[in-house]
């Protein structure tokens, strides 16, 4: 390839600056803005959907992907990233798009089945082979001498689920006494030597740097780690955990403007189809369809799950009580 001159560079730059978003006559393009660990699963799913859509309508649809921290991605959409669909780690982040950007209606979560969460997951524990510290449940994480790796709830969606799962466990174990639950999470975070900024960073600290005795993370993340390094780690399923529901929505303002409403909707509905559910189950996310779930039952052990609505009164409340500046999480470090 010959090296283009500077003038060409500048010309291209100016052209790009002035070029409108472009009209899509025959080929349809969708942009799916998602959170960090879903890249592989959406690569597989997008292929399946493209085939499905071509068979159904004859149109070619290509889906571009954008991945990053869940809140960061939501912020990009609010600030103008033209996402046709969003698939984020927490409903709170899509709520934020609604509140701060008014890009979709307030009742977005009721438009698709299961709270707009086509798959779910939970939080579990990963320990080193042989479980040298004898970790069985959340209560073992506050013992002296146990070092726990979990990301920073201020910057990571997964970390918020981690925190809420531990807090919810402590509430149940102590008959709903908030004071004792707070003491429990305080003791737990006192055992955390490193607060990584994201879920993958925490996994790396635990797996590659060999720091800590137990890693708290997404179940799908732990299953993936175990698949990559089967001889080094064991998964411990706690007695109870939280029902973690990553949610999806189409972004009304964008799809109306780009004329992609029909295909964006179909894309999300296809997540609920047997084919879509199968793909997600293969990538360690728990499917909603019972027969798909039963086929993968070996990989998803039975576990008692509580929801954020019943224990914390929804995301807005949970955020205000625990993660806002000066709330419970900050108190842990100020005491």
């Amino acid at each position: 390839m010959s090296r283009p001159s500077l003038l060409l560079f500048i010309a291209v730059g100016i052209a790009l600056l002035l070029a409108p978003a472009g009209a899509h006559a025959k080929r349809i393009e969708l942009l799916n803005v998602s959170y960090d660990p879903t890249r592989e699963v959406y690569v597989a799913f997008n292929q399946a959907f493209a085939a499905h859509w071509r068979a159904k309508t004859g149109d070619t649809v290509s889906i571009r992907q954008s991945h990053g921290g869940s809140s960061k991605q939501a912020r990009a959409v609010i600030d103008g990233l033209r996402a046709d669909v969003v698939s984020l780690a927490l409903a709170y982040d899509i709520d934020a798009i609604q509140r701060n950007g008014r890009l979709l209606p307030a009742d977005w979560q009721t438009r698709l089945p299961h709270n707009s969460a086509p798959y779910y997951s939970t939080l579990a524990l990963l320990v080193r082979k042989g479980n040298p510290k004898g970790i069985r449940d959340w209560s073992d994480l506050v013992r002296a001498g146990v070092s726990v790796i979990t990301p920073n709830p201020k910057t990571s969606g997964a970390a918020r689920w981690n925190y809420l799962a531990a807090y919810g466990y402590a509430l149940r174990a102590n008959g709903g006494e908030a004071e004792k639950a707070r003491a429990f999470v305080t003791a737990l975070y006192r055992n955390v030597p490193v607060l990584d900024s994201g879920a993958r960073g925490a996994s790396t600290t635990f797996v590659e740097r060999r720091i800590g005795d137990v890693l708290v993370n997404w179940e799908n993340e732990l299953l993936l780690t175990r698949q990559l390094r089967p001889d080094d780690f064991e998964i411990v399923v706690p007695s109870v955990s939280i029902l973690a529901e990553p949610t999806v929505a189409w972004v009304d303002r964008v799809v109306k403007r780009r004329g992609t409403e029909v295909v964006a909707r179909a894309y999300l509905e296809f997540l609920y189809s047997p084919e879509g559910q199968e793909i997600f189950a293969r990538h360690f996310y728990r499917p909603r369809l019972p027969d798909v779930l039963s086929r993968y039952a070996k990989q998803f052990p039975e576990i008692t799950l509580f929801t954020i609505d019943e224990v914390f009164g929804g995301w807005q409340q949970a955020h205000q009580d625990h993660f806002a500046d000066g709330a419970t999480f900050d108190q842990i470090y100020l005491r």
Partner: peptide, 8 residues
């Protein structure tokens, strides 16, 4: 960054 993640 932490504050930004909270839309603050």
């Amino acid at each position: 960054v932490t504050k930004l993640e909270q839309y603050d």
